[in-house]
């Protein structure tokens, strides 16, 4: 079997014109989301790990305080969507590069997509349905500022 290797600058042959070039949009997405993620993640790391006593201060009350404001809810949800899709697309690229067996590749790609969908849905629901007074806590351990039911 001989493989034809085209010259590097040979234009890509378009078999069907007018179809969406997903690889191009994926390529562009990695760059656009990358810039946004740089701001979002460095901000996240600065607030959570650098300010104050850093990781020592992170507990339920710290996160509950953040999620009391729509600003941090949206910060985290936008970061979640952008990062999960950015990371999953990167993993897809790597799987396509190294997994040469058709079935193995397919299983890995489905796994990556499933993980992305499950974690995006889970994370979004967690942030937007979070209520410090309505977790699955025994009533006697409820936080002091919560109304008594």
């Amino acid at each position: 079997m001989s493989t034809i290797i085209e010259a590097p600058r040979t234009p890509r042959e378009r078999s069907s014109k007018g179809r969406v070039n997903w690889e191009k949009w994926g390529w562009l997405y990695m760059r656009l989301s990358g810039v946004l993620l740089l701001i979002l993640i460095f901000g996240h790391l600065f607030v959570n790990l650098v300010l104050g006593e850093g990781i020592k201060e992170i507990d339920f009350a710290f996160v509950a305080g953040k999620y009391a404001t729509p600003f941090w809810q949206w910060w985290d949800v936008v970061m979640l969507w952008l990062a999960m899709i950015h990371g999953s697309n990167g993993m897809r690229t790597i799987v396509n590069d190294y997994a040469s067996h058709r079935t193995v590749r397919r299983v890995l790609l489905i796994g990556i997509a499933a993980a992305a969908i499950i974690l995006i849905v889970l994370g979004t629901l967690v942030v937007f349905t979070f209520d410090p007074c309505n977790t699955f806590i025994p009533a006697d351990q409820a936080l002091t500022f919560c109304p008594v039911n």
Partner: peptide
Amino acid sequence: LLVHVLDTAMIRVSPQAY
């Protein structure tokens, strides 16, 4: 990132779990 989404999800379970 996969682990971090799951550990943060504990905030929705209970203060003790988180």
